[in-house]
Design a binder for these strands. Structure first.
Lengths: 214, 214
DNA sequence: CTCTTTATCTCGTCT
DNA sequence: AGACGAGGTAAAGAG
């Protein structure tokens, strides 16, 4: 049978997936969404995430079986009964515009380190997204003169957790390995909030918590 | 207007979101999926992920505006033109059954540490999901007698990365802080694959990489 | 291409 | 309710 380019299908079906993992889905009523980009997703009665999904798949409908295939994955949908099948045309590819991102918080600290870190801006060069060891550090403040420590800042959009501190530690490891005794080092974790264990971990590591908000 | 409990709506609409972030979505054709659990998601022509979404929202349709609200979030959908509106009934809540998980790999090592770690099983007590500091370590092998090191294993389903090594380090920190000099400590990172930087990081930390496969 | 990080992560699980 | 980690994470961004 011929399938539209994009469609929403509500059907009684059972589903098998094999690829990065394997899964089976018992016979039941599911919503199946096929998009113009070739992606397909199978939804159950709850949760945002689909039960099964595949990006950029080629699909065929042969008898009562819809087969979606990509290089290393396959979804096999045995359709028992079609409740609804509607083709979707002229679907918009509009991109969403987001505000209030981590970058926004980061930039606040970059432009006003005096308020947030209590350091003299003229004494430091602020480098956002400084790449060390192939990984970008949120902000590194390089001292222009002697007698000042290098400052390393890790920013989170919502909250500082224990993991945030370990992430900062990873960066500080890399920086001190690279620059050795050329600098002293000070670490900061910044976010609107900090968890209890995050605070404890920051204290143990000697990192300062910097509250920053939108 | 009255909305069905669960539905799929294809409509020309524009969408605003405000909550954990903010976003706007220009007028266009979108697919809107409302599930029996109260979740709602708005899909564009591509990608698996919805453009906007909300779990457990109460919704109302007033004039041309669908309003979805939860505690701290709101989605406002101005509907310009309804292309399709289909109610979805008797939707199945079936759960998916997954195989080939991290736990599977972990158990392989637990039952046969001789093959994977080269240690004598009779000399150790293997504790999967050993909780230290409130966090479960994949496997800890406690030596039964003296003269053997404690073995700590971090397992990944796909590949060992640099982060895997730092995760292991976090656990080993916690274990050595807890047990002090009672043991020596050896770390292992296990997965079907390891990235280049993961291998480098493991070597620098003195962790052994353990290939393990399904 | 590969590798790494982000995310309105989502979702389960445990305190 | 908050915290924490896994995920078939997906998707974006950098090199």
């Amino acid at each position: 049978m011929e399938l539209p380019n994009a469609f929403f299908l509500f059907a009684r079906a059972e589903v098998e997936y094999d690829g990065r993992a394997s899964s089976t889905l018992a016979l039941g009523n599911y919503g199946i969404l096929r998009k113009p980009d070739g992606s397909i997703q199978i939804h159950g009665a709850n949760l945002i995430r689909p039960l099964n999904y595949m990006g950029k798949a080629s699909i065929s409908w042969d008898g009562d079986v819809i087969l979606a295939r990509s290089k290393k994955e396959v979804i096999r949908i045995r359709v028992d009964c079609v409740h609804h099948l509607i083709p979707l045309e002229e679907w918009s590819e509009t991109k969403i515009r987001l505000i209030r991102t981590e970058a926004e918080l980061r930039d606040k600290i970059v432009v006003d380190p005096e308020s947030y870190l209590g350091i003299d801006p003229s004494q430091f060069e602020a480098v956002p997204e400084f790449v060390i060891d192939g990984e970008p550090v949120d902000i590194v403040f390089f001292p222009r003169g002697d007698g000042e420590c290098l400052r390393v800042v890790e920013v989170k959009r919502t909250q500082v957790t224990k993991n945030t501190c370990y992430q900062l530690r990873k960066y500080m490891d890399a920086l001190s390995k690279h620059y050795k005794e050329r600098y002293g080092y000070l670490g900061y974790v910044a976010a609107p909030k900090i968890t209890k264990s995050g605070r404890k971990c920051a204290e143990e590591h000697g990192y300062a918590y910097v509250p920053v908000d939108f």
